[in-house]
Design a protein around this nucleic acid. Sequence first.
DNA 1: AATGAATGAGTCTTCATTCAT
DNA 2: CATGAATGAAGACTCATTCAT
Lengths: 210, 210, 210, 210
Amino acid sequence: MPTFPDSIRKQLVEARRNQILDAAAAVFAEKGFHRATTKEIAQTAGVSEGTIYNYFDNKADLLIGLMTRLAELETLDEELKEALQGNVRDFFIAMFHHRMDRFQQGQEMLQAILPEVLVTLRLRERFYRQYVLRIATLLEQYLEARIKLRHIRPVNVPLTVRALQSMFVGLLILRILGDEPLQSEWDELPEVMATLIFDGLRPCPEEVAE
Amino acid sequence: MPTFPDSIRKQLVEARRNQILDAAAAVFAEKGFHRATTKEIAQTAGVSEGTIYNYFDNKADLLIGLMTRLAELETLDEELKEALQGNVRDFFIAMFHHRMDRFQQGQEMLQAILPEVLVTLRLRERFYRQYVLRIATLLEQYLEARIKLRHIRPVNVPLTVRALQSMFVGLLILRILGDEPLQSEWDELPEVMATLIFDGLRPCPEEVAE
Amino acid sequence: MPTFPDSIRKQLVEARRNQILDAAAAVFAEKGFHRATTKEIAQTAGVSEGTIYNYFDNKADLLIGLMTRLAELETLDEELKEALQGNVRDFFIAMFHHRMDRFQQGQEMLQAILPEVLVTLRLRERFYRQYVLRIATLLEQYLEARIKLRHIRPVNVPLTVRALQSMFVGLLILRILGDEPLQSEWDELPEVMATLIFDGLRPCPEEVAE
Amino acid sequence: MPTFPDSIRKQLVEARRNQILDAAAAVFAEKGFHRATTKEIAQTAGVSEGTIYNYFDNKADLLIGLMTRLAELETLDEELKEALQGNVRDFFIAMFHHRMDRFQQGQEMLQAILPEVLVTLRLRERFYRQYVLRIATLLEQYLEARIKLRHIRPVNVPLTVRALQSMFVGLLILRILGDEPLQSEWDELPEVMATLIFDGLRPCPEEVAE
DNA sequence: AATGAATGAGTCTTCATTCAT
DNA sequence: CATGAATGAAGACTCATTCAT
């Protein structure tokens, strides 16, 4: 048996894992975790059922694998840091754009993960720490800094951050639910949200004055 | 000989249905639809498994029953209409309060329903029409009216409404995920959200001026 | 409580039993014993499920009831005796006519009973004794007598009788199977069978001579 | 790596299917379709319950499988054709022998199938077409040809054929019912039946003349 | 005697997981 | 490593039977 040097083997293993995870994401997203069968995942991935178990301990482990891979997609911090210096409104728009893009990419994975996350304590905790809390903390720091600089009005920072995050999570849900306006006008959302969040619905005094 | 007159029988049937739905909500919320067994639901309800099937066609029908009951909880329209006349900011606060209260009541049911809804096309469509779209339409009408009156700045109405609704949905999710600040400061959310949405994060010109 | 004299009560009881048995026969014949539910029998009979159990011990007891009632339909012996004296060929035709008529009447009951009889040892034994063996014995006696009188050629009596009975049973089966010629030409069967059995398929020497 | 070449795999599959069908035939014949449990079939076959479902869609599919296999046993046509040329009476004896032998072989399968066939529309139709009608057609053709040749007296062909077939079907039923003479004298049946059918019960004129 | 809601034992069927090849 | 047949535990659902009214 020709053996490969470790580095190549690792790449092969990684490729096979991803091939399986892609299939799992697709099937989970379509049918949900429980209605998805390992047989169908195997077929979708083009491998045998047994092979799945050479790369993952069990079906639930596929979800963990998806979560991990989704986390690797997450690079909010760096991008946030880049925009961190600039104008606040621009930062929001940048962040919103960034999030919306990620959603497009990760929607399938999220759709695969989220329903089961909502239902399983261990996943819930993991998901909360890995995604929600990490980003919440970053946003809190940002907001507090900006408030000190008076770029932002003083607000209840933790709750405001939650409200912001909720909006993102909720948008994902509405998308999954098939909302049409979200589908067709997705790209305009960042601007709309920035207006909503930063400028508020209250008519501008100036505008009123006009 | 029919034991009871029809009206009493109907009440008995309704009571039994609710007894079972309560149990189903509890078990679904804790374990999720699939991990919930009819046996456990029966035990929780204090009836036999067979009795469940005297009142519901099948397990999935329990979910439908929960959705229907949740819809009966929903009286947004009327309350919206009441608050419709007043000051816009007050309207938002009232609406937010109203929503937050409903969440408290319906959280268990929603937690039972939502994960499965995300995963099942038929439920998804039903849920979307029954909850999301109905409320979206109301909010759109409200916003448009207020924009005409210049009580609100002109915005992309459908997307803004989606963003608002998303916030609610997302808050529910974060709650399910066990977010601590949301838990402990839940009651302050309406005020925070009203500020966020209506006033925006931008510092007040006057305040800046000070 | 007004009580009825015993004789009237007995008639009422008998009427109710028959009402239920009629329903059972209909449902068993349509769906078979196992797929027939007591609920449907009750509905068909226009009584409640509980009432069935006031008149029968259990579901299987309904089958026994049907067998008993079918046996009461059977009066072969007397009619046989009447025709016993006459010409042999006429006897066969009379008997065949008689059997065909009985089938018309009892088909539903037989169709209800037979499949389950084939499958249940106790019923099998009962059915065999009650119907097959009783008639077999009569026919054997008849045949033997006629053979002695040289009205019939000497044959293996028991087997010949079985062959005859088999034909009847088989005709019933083919009818249940929906055979079209049997349906449309049912009334001509006695004559055809008499020819087959009594005259045989062999061309008449006289006819050949012609 | 596929373990086996296709031809071998097919044989393995076929062997396993037969192993399961054998068990199903045994259990169905003993208890009837409904009282037979998949668990018992599995035990009898020496496999697990799950394995059954790797080879058959569901319990009813086992019946279909049995019917198909029984049909493969059926080669009446060829054998009929062989005997077709000879003397008519010999043909009947040959055919009867042939049928009796088949019954011996297929009794268990037939006993397993028939009761359920009588009760299920789809099976009824299938069974009727596959067995009854096919053979009826053959026999009709044979009879008609022989009638033209004056080897057989002119008779109502369809009904006569039905009567003949009925006899076979009925004999099977009586056997299932445990009739003793049929059991012990089974081998003499062909001769008896040939006499009955071909010669008729009527005493031979010559014999009478004697 | 009649009712029909409640019962729960019993069964088919699914599917994650294992393991011999 | 890959395969996929075999496994059997688990669970939704049915329905004969009981019994309080």
